[in-house]
């Protein structure tokens, strides 16, 4: 019994169904991947660029996708790598320190037209930006996407134990930030 994702991959590998399968796949994962990327890069324009690059990579690589890994894990892996590449490029261009990056992201969040400093959801967004990049990824994947550690370890190439420890540290730091802010 093939899963829906496996069926999609098979259809994509058939020339006649390639476009239709790709459109279904994009529609299925676009929002999840968009928000995963947006939590990392903060601004919509940047998230849009990274999301497009992610799906272009999917188009080029899906032909050679092997069924031994889950499609959504593979998609998250591409989106994560694209986000990190984007952030690396930006860091190289601006050559700013980690503290300044956190402040920069914080300012971008505050610049949103709907920003409300008293709303817990916004405080949470500000708190997440204080975390180191990798810890932020772990927290986002677990808290928002509710990804099991085993799957996350495939996305981030890190052991499940290390990811669990990282998530706990991140959650405590965020809680402390929210309480003190």
């Amino acid at each position: 019994m093939l899963s829906k994702d496996q069926e999609l991959v098979l259809q994509f590998k058939t020339a006649a169904n390639k476009d239709a399968a790709y459109t279904i796949l994009v529609k299925k994962y676009q929002e999840k991947l968009y928000w995963h990327i947006r939590r990392m890069v903060v601004e919509h324009e940047d998230a849009n660029d990274v999301l497009q690059n992610t799906f272009i990579k999917v188009w080029k690589g899906l032909e050679n996708f092997r069924d031994d890994s889950q499609l959504y894990t593979w998609l998250y892996r591409i989106a994560t790598n694209e986000s990190l590449s984007f952030l690396d490029q930006r860091k190289r261009k601006s050559a700013i320190q980690f503290d300044e990056i956190a402040r920069d992201f914080g300012n971008k969040i505050k610049a949103d037209s709907h920003f409300d400093a008293n709303q817990l959801e916004w405080k949470l967004q500000l708190a997440i930006q204080q975390l180191p990049e990798k810890q932020r990824l772990v927290f986002n994947l677990r808290y928002f996407d509710e990804m099991p550690y085993e799957e996350m370890s495939k996305v981030l190439d890190t052991s499940a134990g290390a990811l669990k420890a990282s998530y706990h540290h991140a959650a405590k730091k965020i809680e402390e930030f929210i309480i003190n802010s």
């Binding site: 939590r39 949103d112 959801e121 965020i174 309480i179």
Partner: peptide, 20 residues
């Protein structure tokens, strides 16, 4: 998460940012 941080568990996971 409730055991780790009840405060975080109580926050809505809906993103406050908007999309065009």
């Amino acid at each position: 998460l409730n055991e780790l941080s009840p405060l975080l568990e109580g926050i809505s996971k809906t993103m406050p940012q908007t999309v065009p």
